[in-house]
């Protein structure tokens, strides 16, 4: 399917390919790299049901490696919208992206993060800041932006100075924003519905290390293991990827 899309794109069309992320980013990794990315063809790869959204469908249907895979493919733009409105912005913006793009999306039941006016100046590659924090900067992507904002509300109520960054574009990576918020805060917490290896947390760690920023830092996500099966909401609670869990992890980090 991906190679056929590359062929279509080679005739001058912008092509959209959509399937479960586990079967797109993992199964078709080589076709994505060789046929769409090396060739810089405008194929839009839409991987849905990312992370552990397919709950009890099991490991075959989970995708907690797709950011690591796609992020390491040169020429590929990688985005993870926080909600449907942001996805719309990205699809509109994609018209001007000459090469291939990977969209990491959820299962279509994602709560809204943004109102109609909130994304007027949306720009691919420019992270969105939700407040500034001196105690803590939470950097989240995709499905984790909503619970991260809710967690921040709870922490603020406890007197914690916390800001949240919506890192909707994983590649190209907004290093400036990451470095900026990390310099302003004493602690940085990344949150992703992904293996902690190779995804958002790794990208932030790389950016901070190369900029020489020293900060108390923690990557939060799926800890290099295969998820249990279970209903998604139960899994989010179990892996502390809901608002309560993220707040609890943040409190540990803050000491």
């Amino acid at each position: 399917m991906v190679s056929a899309a590359a062929g279509l794109a080679a005739t001058g069309l912008q092509v959209h390919v959509a399937t479960f992320a586990s079967f797109l980013a993992l199964l078709c990794a080589e076709q994505i790299r060789t046929d769409t990315a090396y060739t810089k063809l405008p194929v839009r790869l839409i991987g849905h049901h990312t992370g552990i959204t397919l709950g009890f469908y099991g490991t075959s249907h989970h995708a907690t490696e797709d950011l690591a895979i796609t992020r390491s493919i040169a020429n590929l733009t990688v985005v993870a919208p926080a909600d449907p409105r942001q996805l719309s912005c990205m699809l509109r913006a994609s018209v001007d992206v000459p090469g291939p793009m990977y969209f990491r999306i959820g299962r279509g039941r994602d709560p809204e993060v943004y109102g109609a006016e909130d994304l007027a100046d949306f720009s691919l590659g420019r992270a969105i800041r939700h407040g500034a924090g001196e105690d803590l900067a939470i950097i989240a992507t995709g499905s984790m932006v909503h619970p991260a904002l809710a967690a921040a509300e709870r922490l603020r109520a406890e007197g914690v100075s916390v800001g949240v960054v919506d890192m909707h574009t994983i590649k190209p990576f907004d290093t400036d924003t990451v470095v900026d918020v990390a310099r302003a805060a004493r602690n940085v917490l990344t949150v992703e519905e992904h293996n902690v290896i190779g995804g958002l947390g790794s990208a932030v760690a790389e950016a901070l290390a190369e900029a020489g920023v020293s900060v108390n830092f923690r990557r939060h996500g799926i800890a290099d293991q295969y998820s249990l099966v279970g209903p998604p909401t139960h899994l989010y609670r179990h892996y502390q990827l809901d608002a309560d869990g993220i707040a609890a992890v943040a409190r540990q980090l803050l000491g």
Partner: peptide
């Protein structure tokens, strides 16, 4: 079946 931590999911493991 399919409850949190049960080995039996929708697909065989």
């Amino acid at each position: 079946y399919t409850r949190l931590g049960n080995p039996l999911g929708d697909h065989p493991d």
